[in-house]
């Protein structure tokens, strides 16, 4: 049987990543968690933004819903985040459905949809800031109860690393699988040409809403992990523009609408940004943000289809040009 690199390479990568905690320092593991979380979130954003072509600039809305739901439920009634994460996912799904229905039913597309998502996420920042029940501007702590796997709290970083590794691996597996199924093709068709898709029997409204709901659920689960890992959330760091921008940045740099693009974008950019932050943080704070900006401009100019797109183009040329 022919060796299929698109199966072998991810498995090899998974094995390497799974072995990393055996010899990595805590700091390396921390970077690993950041990379994987970024890869996970960008991959989730890419379902809606890359495949279905609806660019959300306010995906932190769903990140925040996940994070606040599980954290609030744990603080108030002691509900374990293992269950709270699904409550958060449900809320995100409901909100996602409403946003999708309202936007897409009434024909909001492209930049208008993007603006609505920014507005909603930003509105949540102010709403939560003014809600004392949710900790207001100070945010919420995830109370440390000691090492307790049942409450998703762990000593050290190894367990967190494995959780996000598994989440990311499952998500990538799911995207790879479903992007080659009916729904995956329908999302691409909606992105490529809405009228043509509709004429060929694709319920374009339903497909876009579904893509948004799936993407929202994925993002909310990521938000729960975010809260458990940092053990602290506030309106700006989960609902703010920072997470929203990172999600789409990694996806665009890696390659929109590709399985591996967003993860590759995160793997390349997060360590560089962290290095910039830690080495220049004192003298030049915000250096990593500047770096993101520069990288984005360069990618737009020289490889508008992202890293994966560039590789595909080169591959095609190598195989004897444009068919």
């Amino acid at each position: 049987m022919k060796l299929r690199w698109n199966v072998v390479a991810p498995l090899a990568l998974l094995v390497v990543l799974a072995g990393l905690p055996l010899f990595a320092t805590e700091y390396m593991l921390h970077i690993g968690v950041l990379v994987l979380l970024a890869a996970y979130l960008a991959t989730g954003w890419n379902i809606l933004g890359g495949y279905a072509g609806q660019h959300s600039l306010g995906h932190s809305l769903f990140l925040g819903i996940g994070a606040y739901t599980s954290t609030y439920l744990f603080a108030q009634i002691g509900l374990t985040p293992w269950i709270g994460m699904w409550v958060g996912a449900l809320f995100a799904a409901i909100v996602g459905w409403f946003v999708g229905y309202l936007c897409f039913r009434y024909g909001l597309r492209g930049p208008y949809f993007a603006l609505v998502t920014i507005a909603l996420a930003e509105a949540m920042v102010y709403l939560v800031t003014n809600l004392n029940a949710l900790g207001g501007a100070e945010g919420l702590d995830v109370r440390w109860v000691g090492h307790n796997p049942a409450l998703m709290q762990f000593e050290g970083k190894t367990a967190y690393y494995y959780i996000i590794l598994i989440m990311t691996a499952l998500l990538l597996f799911g995207v790879q699988r479903y992007s080659r199924r009916r729904f995956g093709y329908q999302m691409i068709a909606v992105r490529e040409n809405e009228d043509a898709a509709e004429a060929l029997g694709v319920d374009t409204l339903a497909v876009r809403i579904r893509a948004l709901v799936i993407s929202a659920v994925v993002t909310a689960l990521g938000g729960v992990f975010f809260a458990q890992y940092y053990t602290y959330i506030n309106p700006r760091n989960v609902f703010g523009e920072g997470p929203s921008v990172q999600m789409l940045l990694f996806a665009i740099v890696g390659g929109l609408g590709t399985v591996w693009g967003p993860a590759i974008g995160a793997i390349l950019l997060v360590p560089i940004a962290e290095f910039a932050r830690s080495s220049l943080g004192n003298t030049f704070s915000g250096a990593h943000l500047l770096l993101y900006g520069v990288v984005l401009v360069l990618v737009m100019l020289f490889m508008p289809n992202g890293i994966v797109g560039l590789v595909q183009t080169l591959e095609r040329r190598r195989r004897g040009g444009r068919a």
């Binding site: 691409i188 068709a189 043509a196």
Partner: peptide, 9 residues
């Protein structure tokens, strides 16, 4: 469609 509407990609 009179003006052809392929899915370009």
């Amino acid at each position: 469609f009179q003006i052809v509407q392929p899915f370009p990609e």
